[in-house]
Structure formats: C-alpha cells, structure tokens
Amino acid sequence: MKLALFAFGTLLAAFTAHLVLWRVRLPRLHTATLLVVFFGTLAAALTLAANSPALAGYGPSGAWQYLLVATFHGSLSLAYIAFYSAIEEDSPSCQIVLSIDGAGAAGRSRAQLAVLLDNDRLVLSKIRSMLRDGMVAEEGGALKLTAFGRSIARAYLLVERVFGLARGG
C-alpha cells in the first residue's frame, strides 16, 4: 500500500504543479508543457525515492517496482493530457448539449444551434492549428499534406480499415 501511496502522491504533485502553473501563466504550448510537468515530476519523485532516506519504505524497491510506478504514472498522465484537449477546446457536441439543456423545456431549434457553431471557430481554427503543428502547408490557396500529416492520415486510415469504423463528423 505504501508503494501505491507514493505513486498516487507523485501523480497528485504533478497535477497540483500543472494547476498552479496554469493559474500563474497559461503556457503557449499546452501539450508540451503538460508533458514536461507530469514526466518531470515523475523523474524528480523517482530520483528522490532512490536517494532520500526519508522515503525509504515508501518508494519503489527493485527495477520492476520502478517500472510499475512509471507505468501507472505514465499511462494516467498521458490519459489526462489527451483528456485535456477536450477540456481546452470547446467541443461542438458539448456546446450543443449544454445549450439545449440551458433552454429547458423550450428546447433549441436547429437555427439557434447554428448560431453557436460558426466556420471560423469550428473549421478555420482547426486548419490554423494544423498549419502551426506542421501537418499541412498552404500553397497558393490550397492546403497540402506534409510528410508528417501524410503519416498521420495513413495511420488513421489503417485504423479505420482494421477496426471497421464508420466515418464520423
């Protein structure tokens, strides 16, 4: 149980660091900063556990326990970072259900919902982020896949075929 306490404590410390940092100053590159915060905290905690007599008995002992703590912390950190994009961006589906809920028994018409979702927020903001992240490039009014974007597209096409997934929207 002490090992679990150590692991949960490390994860909590990382999350607290993330919250404090976000309140002090929102970083420009959210994903990169989250990776640094969460995995930096893990590295610091494991180093401390290996070298501090005060943490003897709480920290991992043996390579496999180090790996178990790292697996636990790593998987939940990456899950949170993936989840964070849902927190950060205004999901169209979330905006729709919240708006409908807010309207109560009167409900919302399609026209009212269309006002919430405009091209700039929904589509152009995504294209701008793809340009920024190097997935596409703009050439004479056209969007062209970069090598990076091509790899991602092919990977997802493969997933679609293997899993027999229907296209969404």
């Binding site: 998987s75 989840f83 793809m130 997935m135 596409v136 091509r150 597209a153």
Partner: peptide, 26 residues
C-alpha cells in the same frame, strides 16, 4: 490505475478517428 489510463488512451485514439475534424481533413 495503469489499465484505466491505457483504456482511456485507446478510446481516445479510436474516437479521434470518428470525431476529430483534423483527422478527417487529413
């Protein structure tokens, strides 16, 4: 705890294929 993280990661990966506009555009 690790399994929950993996499970969510797997769900996210598959869900992106269906819901992500960026993936659809690419």
């Amino acid at each position: 705890g690790a399994y929950v993280g993996f499970g969510y990661g797997y769900f996210s990966f598959l869900n992106l294929n269906q819901a992500s506009l960026r993936v659809r555009i690419m």
